[in-house]
Amino acid sequence: MTNAPTPRTILITGAAGGMCRGVNARLAAAGHTVLCADLSRDAAEQAADAVRADGGRAEAFTVDVSDPASIADLTAEVHDRAGEIDVLVNAAGILDRKYLADHDEHSFQRTLDINLTGPFRMIQAFSPELIRRGWGRIINISSIAGVTGYPYPSYSASKAGLSNLTRSLVIDFWGTGVTVNSICPGVVDTPMVIQEVRDQVPRKVPTEQIVDPAEIGGLALFLMSDDARNINGADMLIDGGATRYFQLFDRP
């Protein structure tokens, strides 16, 4: 008989996004407490309410991952209201649909600050408690855009950086009981995905399927499990085989 998983407290940034709604629900359904952090308090409350409506445990928090002061406030509020966390999921991110010629330095840097430096700040803020307790999971939501390249260079560069940050941090967590991995989704069924991309799925994704957000939640659950205790510093692709065949965009 398999023992029930230990209930964990999971902090998710960008928790109000379309992808994370499915992740939140999957994690809460497994008996874990989900701390929904987002830039908008109202959006975070709605995400938490959706979890609670299905019988799960959730709390709402506000954070701007590009602002160190906001992360400091989040850290204090989480510890005050929920105690220490067990799992950190860095999912906050933006996609700036600009080609090279359309970018200026500010717009390029803004994407990096949210998608790459934001997770770095969050890990710095919350990893000491994971290390102190001798167990923890850090899961960065990257993208196949960081594996294959992408027409939008700020997004591609930020996700490539996030995946390599993941690989590099295994040194910092050596022997601590904390693992750090990234999940690299392909085309996910969210409002962010434009119809042009959806239309390409049957001819560019070998499974001919778009990824359900709940599948990403399922992969996160696996990474939290004892069966994944030796998976560390990995990029976990969940893309229907797209990166093994060809890129998702034609040349513009």
Rank of each mutant, 00 (worst) to 15 (best):
residue 57 R to A: 14
residue 144 I to A: 01
residue 116 L to M: 08
residue 143 S to I: 07
residue 60 A to H: 06
residue 190 T to Y: 07
residue 62 T to G: 00
residue 79 H to Y: 07
residue 193 V to P: 03
residue 17 G to V: 06
residue 15 A to R: 04
residue 152 Y to C: 11
residue 61 F to W: 07
residue 18 G to D: 09
residue 86 D to Y: 08
residue 40 S to W: 08
residue 42 D to H: 11
residue 59 E to W: 01
residue 85 I to Q: 04
residue 1 M to R: 13
residue 11 L to Q: 04
residue 249 F to Y: 15
residue 72 A to I: 07
residue 52 R to D: 01
residue 124 Q to T: 14
residue 17 G to S: 12
residue 188 V to T: 14
residue 34 V to T: 06
residue 161 G to H: 01
residue 41 R to I: 13
residue 87 V to G: 05
residue 140 N to G: 10
residue 110 R to G: 00
residue 31 G to I: 13
residue 84 E to R: 12
residue 187 V to F: 00
residue 37 A to P: 03
residue 181 N to T: 10
residue 152 Y to E: 12
residue 233 G to H: 07
residue 29 A to M: 02
residue 220 A to V: 14
residue 224 M to I: 09
residue 158 S to V: 11
residue 252 P to T: 14
residue 48 A to M: 03
residue 207 T to N: 09
residue 247 Q to R: 08
residue 182 S to P: 10
residue 79 H to M: 12
residue 159 K to A: 11
residue 175 G to C: 07
residue 77 E to I: 06
residue 18 G to C: 06
residue 159 K to H: 03
residue 135 W to F: 12
residue 126 F to T: 07
residue 105 E to V: 11
residue 174 W to T: 14
residue 215 E to V: 02
residue 222 F to L: 09
residue 128 P to I: 13
residue 120 F to V: 12
residue 192 M to L: 15
